[in-house]
Design a protein around this nucleic acid. Structure first.
Lengths: 151, 151
DNA sequence: TTTGTTTTGGTGTTAGAACATCTAAGTTTG
DNA sequence: CAAACTTAGATGTTCTAACACCAAAACAAA
């Protein structure tokens, strides 16, 4: 649906403002659907984000700051999120050998299992994952425009 | 900067996933810059959103549910946000004549003044508002792709 | 009318975001 | 070496998002 209809906006907006509001609105919409998809698995969206980051760098682990620099939302509190994931046994924490300030976090087997379960469920869900209405070329285009938007 | 660089991602991502992550990342980035711009004015980003909505429908006011349906982030708690804005005297609340369940919220003169101050400051800021690196056509394109993404 | 349902807005609760601050370990410099 | 500074991570605090739930008013049906 067009943004103007979603927001019941009457007056037409300038193109740049429309793009900006649309980014915020679409992200909020997307975050909402992801949260809904994750709920049955007892995991939150930032926790899921961390798990995917760790999975991407497995079998090597990452330090807390490394995780933070790779996160979508960099204002979040990685220490506490990692602690939650450790309690639910989806990640493991080992002190770094050389630098005793550092903690290396790795995804556990249970964490990997959870990720694949979630991936399966999302695939089953709405005949493929969210946002697949776009063609391959359009998805590439969208990503490029967003990169440029942030410049 | 390219998303892959921002997130220090090594492996190339499928186009749809890249678009999705880019939406979330860009929105988080955008929200962060907006929050920083609003800080000197003692107002939060959802509060600012409400003020703009009310300004758009002034001099008529809107009910709480009407505001909610027009918000970017629809999960937010409009009652409490409006109460904050009422305390800071940027909005006024009057009970609806006919339907005593309803409350009509309108922007105050102080609220309008704040909005124009913010607009000025944002214009002064980074030689125009955020996201202006896009051409008019690109901004239109981006908005269209986001509309399609949500389908 | 009375009873049940829907709509509108407010509130209670919990987890996390947004900030600052703190401790310990490492690094640099005099 | 010691003192100053930097870095990594944890923690304390405040505010709010995300949910559920509640009360009152309007509405509908018997």
């Amino acid at each position: 649906m067009k943004l103007e209809l979603e927001l019941k906006s009457i007056k037409p907006m300038p193109a740049h403002q429309r793009a900006m509001l649309n980014i915020l609105f679409t992200a909020s919409w997307l975050d909402c659907t992801i949260t809904r998809q994750l709920r049955p698995f007892g995991i939150t969206s930032p926790q899921y984000n961390i798990l995917r980051i760790l999975n991407g760098s497995a079998p090597k682990g990452l330090s807390v700051l490394d995780i933070k620099s790779r996160m979508l939302d960099r204002s979040s509190n990685v220490s506490r999120l990692v602690e939650k994931l450790r309690i639910s046994e989806h990640v493991e924490r080992v002190p770094h050998g050389k630098d005793r300030r550092m903690v290396i976090v790795t995804i556990s087997d249970a964490g990997k299992k959870l990720l694949s379960e979630i991936e399966q469920a999302r695939f089953m869900d709405g005949n493929g994952s969210t946002g697949n209405k776009l063609s391959e070329a359009e998805a590439l285009d969208l990503a490029l425009l967003l990169d440029k938007f942030r410049e």
